[in-house]
Amino acid sequence: MSVRPGAEPYSHDGSREGSGKGATGIVLAHGFTGSPRSMTPWAQHLAGAGYTVRVPRLPGHGTTWQEMNRTRWQDWYAAVDAAFRELDESCDRVFVGGLSMGGALATRLAQEHGPRVRGLMLVNPAYKVEDVRLRALPVLQAVVPSLPGIGNDIKKPGQDEVCYDRVPLKALWSQTKLWATVVRDLPEITQPVLLWHSTDDHVVPASSSALLLSRISSTDVTEKVLHDSYHVATLDHDAPRIFGESVEFIERLS
Rank of each mutant, 00 (worst) to 15 (best):
V27D: 00
W179G: 02
A110W: 04
V167R: 02
D153N: 13
F249K: 14
L140H: 08
K128T: 15
L178Q: 02
T219H: 12
V94T: 07
F249D: 04
S207M: 07
A47W: 07
A239G: 12
Q74I: 06
M68W: 14
G151Q: 04
V162Q: 10
G31P: 06
E112H: 07
P148S: 11
A239T: 10
F249R: 04
Q159H: 15
W73H: 11
S254P: 05
L178K: 05
G6A: 09
A83W: 00
K21N: 11
T234N: 15
V183M: 10
S218H: 07
Q111K: 03
L46K: 06
D236G: 07
D185F: 08
R54C: 08
K21S: 11
L105P: 00
F249I: 06
L122C: 13
Q74H: 08
R118N: 06
Q191L: 08
E245S: 08
A126Q: 08
V129P: 07
I242H: 15
S35V: 10
T181D: 15
P205W: 12
S35A: 09
M1G: 09
A126W: 01
L58M: 08
A233N: 12
E8A: 04
G50T: 13
G34A: 11
G119P: 01
L28F: 13
L172E: 03
G97C: 08
K170C: 05
R93F: 03
A78T: 00
K155Y: 06
E8W: 05
V96F: 03
R184P: 06
A79M: 01
P168T: 14
D200T: 12
V167D: 04
A43W: 15
G31I: 03
F32R: 10
H227F: 09
L137R: 13
V80S: 01
K170L: 15
H113S: 12
R184M: 07
G97Y: 01
D92F: 07
L172K: 03
K156Y: 14
D228A: 15
V182R: 01
P59S: 12
T181N: 08
G48T: 06
L212Y: 03
S35Y: 03
D81W: 00
T219P: 14
A206S: 14
S217V: 12
H202S: 12
R16N: 04
V204Y: 07
Q141T: 10
L99A: 13
A136Q: 02
D185C: 14
F249G: 14
Y230D: 09
I189R: 02
L120V: 03
K155P: 06
T40G: 09
D160W: 12
